[in-house]
Computed example of a mutant assay.
Amino acid sequence: MKLSLVLLWAASALTSPLRRSVAKLSSVTRNGTSLLVDGKVWKMVGPNVYWLGLDENVTPPAGEPFYAPTKASYPTKERITEAMATVQALGGTMIRGHTLGISTGNPLSVMPKPGVVNERAFDPIDWAVYQAGFDLNQRRDEKNPLVQQFYTNATIVATFKDYIKTIITHRNQYNNLTFAEDPTIFAYETGNELLGPVWGDMNSPADWVQDIAKYVKSLAPQKLVVDGTYGINKTHLGIDEVDIFSDHMYPVNTAKLQADIKLVEAAGRPFFIGEYDWVGGNTANLQSMFKIIEESPAVAGDTFWSQFGHNAPDCKTYVDHSDGLALQYGNPKNTANQNSRIQLIRKHFVAMSQGKEIPPDEPLPAVPCPAPTSPTFR
C-alpha cells in the first residue's frame, strides 16, 4: 500500500498526433459507465510507470541527488521521454504513475516532512506531465491496527490533504499550467492498494473516500476521481464523487474480473484494472482477460505492471526491477515468451484505443534511444 495520490494522465499524441499545444487538449469526462473525449468513447490503456517522480532502481552519477538508505534518486529526462515513446509504440493512451514525490520522510520527496515542500522534486514530475501532454511493491503490513490511523486521525488526514493540495495546485515549470488546470492529467486516484489492518480487507472507510474525493474535486473540479481501495468495496459504490472503481489482478483471474465488472456496472460507473501480472500464468488466461475487457463497454481500460526502459542517456543498459514484472521494450535479452506477451499487449491496446486489429506477430515499432523530446513550450 502506498499512501500517495496516484496521477493518471493521457498522452495526447496517442489521441491526436496533430496537436501541438497542451492548451488544445480536450479533457476526459464521464457519462455513466463510459469515459469520453470530445464526445467520443475513450479507453484508458497503458502501463504503470511508477518511477516517473522518484526511483529506487538506479544509482545516479556522483553529485546527483541520491538518498542511500532507500536508494532514492530522480529519473533522468531521457528515461521519462523514452517511457512516453514506448507507450506510443504499444498503442497505449495513458499512464498510471504513483511515486510522484511519494509520501514524507525522504529528503528527495515532494514533502520531506509535513509542511515542507521540496520544489526540486517537481522537476521530473513536471517533465513527465509535459511530455505526456505533448507527445504522447506492495508492503503487506498484516494485522497492523495503526493503518487505520491514516483514515481516522485528524492530524494525519489534514497532512494528507496538505500533500494533495501541494500536488494539485503545483504550477508546471514547462507549460505554466497547474496540475488542476492541465488536461493532460485526467484523473487522481485516492491511493494505491488502500486497505485496513488486515491485507486485502478493503477497509478504507467510505466516509474517508468521500471526503478525499470531495477535496480533490474542490481543488480540481474538472478531474475524475478513482477509488484506490484494493478491490471493490460495496459500501463505496454509492459515493457520487467517485468516477471510476478499480481492482488489481495478481494473478489474472477472469471470474473475479467478471464479478467486479458486474458490481461496478450496476452502480453506473466505469471499471478499471489498475495493475495486472503481464508475464505470469498462461497466455490463454491473459488473452481471455483482454477479450473480456474489449467486449465489456463498462470497462474503461487497464494498465499492466510495470514498464521500464534504458538507463538513458545510457542507451546500452536497461533498468531492471526486483519483482520480475519489468517490461523492457526492445530488450534483446527478452525471452520469446516476454516478446510474445508484449506483442499481445500491443494488439490489445490498439484494439481498445483505435478499434483496429493487428496481427499478433507484427513486428513491434522501433523506439529510438534517446527518444525525441517535445520542443520548448511556447
Score class of each variant (00 low, 15 high):
148 Q>H: 14
257 L>M: 10
180 A>K: 03
350 V>I: 15
16 S>F: 11
260 D>I: 04
317 T>M: 11
9 W>S: 04
19 R>W: 05
260 D>W: 02
296 S>Q: 08
55 D>W: 02
365 P>I: 03
124 P>K: 06
222 Q>D: 15
75 P>I: 07
114 P>W: 02
293 I>T: 01
359 P>W: 02
342 I>C: 00
259 A>F: 08
118 N>A: 05
293 I>S: 00
102 I>R: 03
66 F>H: 12
25 L>N: 09
246 S>E: 13
259 A>S: 13
97 G>M: 00
283 T>R: 07
250 Y>K: 05
193 E>Q: 08
122 F>Q: 05
72 A>V: 02
342 I>W: 01
367 V>C: 09
322 S>K: 09
228 G>V: 08
212 I>N: 01
375 P>S: 12
166 T>S: 13
162 D>M: 08
57 N>M: 11
354 Q>N: 11
284 A>K: 14
149 Q>H: 11
105 G>Y: 14
139 R>E: 08
149 Q>N: 13
69 P>W: 09
277 D>K: 10
224 L>W: 01
84 M>L: 15
143 K>C: 04
193 E>V: 04
373 T>W: 05
131 Q>H: 08
48 N>T: 11
305 W>I: 04
240 D>G: 15
141 D>Q: 11
65 P>Q: 12
334 N>K: 08
74 Y>P: 09
3 L>N: 12
195 L>S: 03
280 G>K: 10
378 R>A: 15
355 G>M: 10
294 E>Y: 07
330 G>M: 11
141 D>N: 15
305 W>A: 01
311 N>M: 12
280 G>W: 09
42 W>Q: 01
370 P>F: 03
95 I>S: 01
338 Q>E: 15
64 E>H: 06
37 V>D: 02
294 E>I: 02
54 L>M: 15
